[in-house]
Measured scan of single mutants.
Amino acid sequence: NQASVVANQLIPIQTALTLVMMRSEVVTPVGIPAEDIPRLVSMQVNRAVPLGTTLMPDMVKGYA
């Protein structure tokens, strides 16, 4: 099973992502693949992302 990127904390809207905000976890449905974590650093979320939420491509500006 492929690991996805999951929020390690509440990430407020417009926040630039850092490594400490994300973790990898095998979840359903599958979100952004964990191997993309380095690419996500400094990208902004376009909505508030609660703790434990799987990051989906449409939540990160410039990802999809």
Rank of each mutant, 00 (worst) to 15 (best):
27 V>N: 02
24 S>V: 09
45 V>Y: 00
39 R>W: 10
52 G>Y: 04
42 S>C: 15
15 T>E: 07
12 P>L: 07
27 V>R: 10
54 T>N: 03
19 L>T: 07
12 P>F: 04
61 K>H: 14
60 V>T: 00
12 P>C: 06
64 A>R: 09
29 P>D: 05
31 G>P: 00
41 V>D: 01
5 V>F: 04
25 E>C: 08
33 P>C: 09
10 L>P: 11
22 M>D: 01
42 S>G: 14
39 R>L: 12
11 I>E: 01
7 A>Q: 02
48 A>Q: 13
56 M>V: 09
18 T>E: 07
23 R>I: 06
15 T>A: 10
22 M>T: 00
3 A>Q: 09
60 V>F: 06
25 E>Q: 09
57 P>I: 05
8 N>S: 10
35 E>T: 11
50 P>C: 07
23 R>S: 06
9 Q>Y: 12
21 M>Y: 05
12 P>N: 08
38 P>Q: 14
60 V>G: 01
38 P>Y: 12
34 A>H: 07
36 D>T: 08
3 A>T: 08
48 A>H: 14
2 Q>A: 12
44 Q>E: 14
28 T>Q: 10
11 I>Y: 00
41 V>A: 05
56 M>S: 06
25 E>F: 07
55 L>S: 01
21 M>E: 00
16 A>I: 10
14 Q>G: 12
48 A>N: 15
16 A>H: 15
14 Q>C: 13
17 L>A: 00
45 V>L: 11
35 E>Y: 13
26 V>D: 10
26 V>E: 15
39 R>Q: 08
62 G>S: 08
29 P>H: 04
13 I>S: 13
4 S>C: 05
25 E>V: 09
26 V>T: 10
57 P>A: 11
6 V>H: 02
45 V>T: 13
4 S>D: 01
45 V>S: 05
23 R>D: 05
53 T>N: 10
6 V>M: 03
6 V>G: 02
4 S>Q: 00
39 R>S: 09
2 Q>E: 13
7 A>I: 04
54 T>W: 04
28 T>C: 11
26 V>G: 04
26 V>K: 06
64 A>K: 12
59 M>L: 05
36 D>M: 14
5 V>P: 00
43 M>D: 01
30 V>Q: 15
14 Q>A: 15
38 P>T: 12
56 M>T: 13
48 A>I: 13
18 T>F: 04
38 P>A: 13
40 L>I: 12
36 D>Q: 12
35 E>K: 08
30 V>E: 14
5 V>I: 14
62 G>N: 14
51 L>D: 14
26 V>A: 09
45 V>E: 00
59 M>A: 07
29 P>C: 06
24 S>M: 07
35 E>H: 12
54 T>D: 01
29 P>Q: 05
56 M>C: 07
39 R>E: 06
62 G>K: 06
17 L>W: 04
20 V>F: 15
12 P>H: 08
11 I>N: 01
20 V>Q: 13
28 T>R: 05
12 P>Q: 11
7 A>R: 02
42 S>F: 11
39 R>K: 15
33 P>N: 09
38 P>E: 11
18 T>R: 09
10 L>H: 15
4 S>L: 02
10 L>V: 12
25 E>N: 10
38 P>R: 10
54 T>Q: 03
35 E>R: 07
19 L>P: 06
4 S>P: 02
13 I>A: 15
3 A>S: 10
19 L>Y: 14
8 N>Y: 04
42 S>N: 14
64 A>D: 08
9 Q>T: 13
44 Q>R: 14
34 A>P: 05
10 L>S: 13
62 G>I: 04
6 V>W: 03
59 M>P: 00
41 V>C: 11
8 N>E: 06
8 N>Q: 10
53 T>W: 14
51 L>R: 11
61 K>G: 07
45 V>P: 00
45 V>K: 00
18 T>L: 07
62 G>Y: 10
59 M>T: 05
18 T>S: 09
43 M>Y: 11
14 Q>K: 14
4 S>Y: 03
44 Q>Y: 15
47 R>P: 02
11 I>V: 06
33 P>E: 04
6 V>P: 00
21 M>W: 04
52 G>W: 04
50 P>G: 10
34 A>C: 11
36 D>I: 07
10 L>T: 11
11 I>W: 02
50 P>Y: 13
64 A>Q: 13
36 D>A: 11
43 M>W: 07
9 Q>D: 06
64 A>I: 12
57 P>Y: 12
52 G>E: 02
48 A>L: 12
49 V>H: 01
9 Q>C: 10
43 M>P: 00
40 L>D: 00
44 Q>K: 14
50 P>H: 09
37 I>C: 05
50 P>L: 09
4 S>E: 00
11 I>A: 01
31 G>C: 04
56 M>F: 09
40 L>H: 00
27 V>Q: 00
43 M>A: 07
47 R>C: 10
50 P>A: 11
39 R>F: 10
18 T>A: 08
26 V>R: 06
14 Q>V: 05
15 T>K: 07
58 D>Y: 15
43 M>T: 02
60 V>Q: 00
36 D>G: 05
20 V>L: 14
27 V>D: 02
33 P>D: 06
51 L>G: 12
37 I>M: 13
1 N>S: 15
24 S>L: 06
17 L>G: 03
10 L>Q: 11
48 A>M: 15
5 V>W: 03
15 T>L: 05
12 P>V: 05
21 M>F: 04
55 L>P: 01
9 Q>I: 11
58 D>N: 12
3 A>Y: 13
64 A>V: 10
20 V>C: 12
38 P>D: 10
25 E>L: 08
50 P>Q: 12
50 P>K: 09
44 Q>H: 11
20 V>Y: 15
1 N>A: 15
33 P>S: 09
40 L>E: 01
37 I>T: 06
37 I>R: 06
4 S>T: 03
56 M>R: 08
2 Q>C: 08
53 T>L: 12
15 T>H: 07
34 A>Q: 06
64 A>G: 14
30 V>K: 08
47 R>N: 07
28 T>V: 09
20 V>W: 14
30 V>S: 14
7 A>H: 00
62 G>M: 10
35 E>Q: 12
33 P>W: 11
47 R>G: 05
28 T>W: 08
22 M>N: 00
44 Q>M: 14
7 A>D: 01
31 G>R: 00
7 A>Y: 03
1 N>C: 07
62 G>E: 09
12 P>I: 04
14 Q>L: 14
1 N>L: 15
38 P>V: 08
52 G>F: 04
39 R>H: 10
45 V>A: 04
26 V>P: 07
14 Q>F: 13
36 D>H: 13
41 V>H: 02
25 E>G: 11
17 L>E: 02
61 K>F: 11
10 L>Y: 15
24 S>E: 11
62 G>D: 13
47 R>I: 10
1 N>Q: 15
47 R>K: 14
45 V>M: 08
56 M>H: 07
12 P>K: 08
40 L>V: 04
40 L>Y: 02
33 P>R: 09
16 A>R: 11
34 A>N: 06
20 V>E: 07
54 T>A: 06
5 V>H: 01
61 K>Q: 14
37 I>E: 01
56 M>Y: 08
26 V>N: 12
4 S>V: 02
1 N>P: 15
30 V>G: 09
4 S>H: 01
47 R>V: 12
1 N>G: 15
55 L>I: 14
64 A>P: 11
1 N>T: 15
59 M>N: 06
3 A>C: 12
57 P>D: 06
31 G>W: 03
48 A>W: 09
51 L>T: 10
61 K>Y: 14
35 E>D: 10
58 D>H: 12
31 G>D: 01
32 I>E: 00
31 G>Q: 02
64 A>L: 13
33 P>Y: 08
22 M>P: 00
35 E>C: 12
40 L>P: 00
41 V>E: 06
33 P>I: 08
44 Q>F: 15
52 G>P: 02
26 V>I: 14
54 T>S: 04
55 L>M: 15
17 L>R: 00
12 P>G: 06
27 V>T: 11
42 S>Y: 09
63 Y>V: 04
42 S>M: 15
1 N>F: 13
2 Q>W: 14
25 E>I: 06
16 A>G: 07
53 T>K: 08
60 V>R: 02
32 I>P: 00
21 M>C: 04
43 M>L: 11
21 M>L: 05
6 V>K: 03
53 T>M: 12
24 S>Y: 10
7 A>E: 02
35 E>V: 12
63 Y>F: 11
29 P>L: 05
33 P>L: 08
23 R>G: 06
48 A>Y: 13
13 I>E: 14
10 L>A: 13
30 V>I: 14
36 D>P: 00
20 V>P: 11
6 V>L: 09
28 T>E: 15
28 T>Y: 11
16 A>V: 13
19 L>E: 06
7 A>L: 03
17 L>P: 02
37 I>H: 00
61 K>R: 14
36 D>S: 10
41 V>P: 00
56 M>K: 08
19 L>V: 08
19 L>W: 11
50 P>F: 08
23 R>H: 05
14 Q>Y: 15
2 Q>R: 07
18 T>W: 04
33 P>M: 07
28 T>H: 09
3 A>D: 05
7 A>V: 06
38 P>W: 11
60 V>H: 03
